Each structure stands twice: as structure tokens, then as C-alpha cells.
Amino acid sequence: MTNSHHNFNTIANPEAEKAKCPPPFSLRLTYEERARLDAERGDKSLAAYIRERLFGSDAAPRKRRGNSPVQDKEALGRMAGALGQSRLSQNLNQLAKAVNSGSLLVTPETEAELKEACREVSEMRAELLAALGKVPGSEP
């Protein structure tokens, strides 16, 4: 690194010497070029596709973050669809308002329905966690 680069980096960013990654590279594309890349990349990220095209098998592998490991996209899609079609959030909000106002009449039938709703929410949670490759009760 030359002195001029060192001085600029130190002034602009005192932590520059400790940086683990080089700064990102920006590239301007026409709308048509971007559309072509998006169409050709398939399921890959645009960055991964461009690196693969530039460097082929010499492209350095990237570390995976692992913070969104969708194991079962189909199950995740089913869950998202089921939640989208349900009125679960609205119904829970109405229940919470009724409880807070003291107007919820708790009969054996109401209690059974609430327990059933809790069971269904627990099942959805377990399916969602499974689709994400997580085990219920494990650390995030």
C-alpha cells in the first residue's frame, strides 16, 4: 500500500487497516443489461452470478451467513399462504381487546376454542421452524 493510499484510508476511515473485506465495487448497467443478468442468474444472487461469470471455477467461495437457511421452500410457501388467507392476527387482536376491556365471556366453549387456536398456532410455528431448518426450542 502506498503512503498516499495509507494516509487517505486512515483519514477517511481510521479502522481501514483492520477491515477484513475490500470496499464494494459499483457497476452501472443499462436496464436491458440488468434485465438480462436477472434473467440469466436463476436462483443465484446477482453478485454470485457475476463472480461466477467473471472468474469461473477460480471464484473464491463466500462465507454463508446462515441467518436465513430456508430448508423447505415449499413448506414455507404453504405457511405463508395459510397465514395470508387466515384472519389470525385480526382475531387475536379482537380477543386481546375483549380481554383488556373485560368483555370476553369465558364459557367452556370459549375456553375450548381458545385452546384449539393455541394448538393451531403452535403447529404453524413448528412447521415454520422446520421449513427454516430450525428445531423448536433451540437457540436462534
Rank of each mutant, 00 (worst) to 15 (best):
118 C>I: 11
101 S>C: 05
75 A>K: 07
124 M>N: 00
138 S>G: 02
132 L>E: 03
76 L>V: 12
94 Q>P: 06
83 L>K: 03
123 E>T: 07
69 P>K: 11
56 G>R: 02
123 E>G: 09
133 G>C: 02
61 P>I: 08
136 P>F: 07
140 P>N: 02
139 E>R: 10
100 N>A: 07
74 E>V: 15
134 K>I: 06
102 G>W: 08
106 V>F: 14
93 N>R: 14
134 K>V: 09
87 R>E: 15
114 L>Q: 12
54 L>R: 03
56 G>C: 02
55 F>P: 01
105 L>V: 03
75 A>P: 05
64 R>W: 05
94 Q>K: 10
61 P>N: 05
115 K>N: 08
91 N>T: 15
85 Q>F: 12
66 G>A: 08
82 A>L: 11
66 G>L: 09
59 A>V: 06
54 L>H: 04
53 R>Q: 11
114 L>G: 12
106 V>D: 12
79 M>P: 05
108 P>S: 10
62 R>K: 06
105 L>R: 00
111 E>R: 04
95 L>P: 11
133 G>A: 02
116 E>W: 08
89 S>T: 13
114 L>A: 13
115 K>I: 08
140 P>V: 06
73 K>G: 12
65 R>Y: 14
77 G>E: 12
88 L>N: 04
63 K>D: 13
86 S>P: 00
111 E>I: 08
121 V>Q: 00
61 P>S: 07
127 E>L: 06
112 A>R: 02
85 Q>D: 12
117 A>G: 00
54 L>W: 06
96 A>S: 09
90 Q>A: 14
68 S>I: 15
107 T>C: 01
117 A>H: 00
123 E>V: 09
89 S>K: 01
77 G>Q: 12
56 G>V: 07
133 G>M: 01
89 S>L: 10
84 G>D: 07
55 F>I: 02
60 A>R: 07
92 L>D: 10
69 P>N: 15
107 T>A: 01
139 E>L: 06
135 V>D: 01
52 E>F: 11
62 R>P: 08
125 R>K: 02
65 R>G: 15
68 S>N: 14
121 V>N: 00
64 R>F: 08
93 N>L: 13
70 V>T: 10
129 L>A: 05
133 G>L: 01
92 L>M: 08
131 A>T: 11
134 K>W: 04
116 E>D: 09
100 N>S: 05
93 N>M: 13
116 E>R: 09
53 R>F: 06
84 G>N: 08
65 R>K: 12
89 S>E: 12
67 N>M: 12
102 G>S: 07
83 L>V: 05
62 R>W: 13
109 E>C: 02
125 R>D: 07
135 V>L: 04
79 M>C: 13
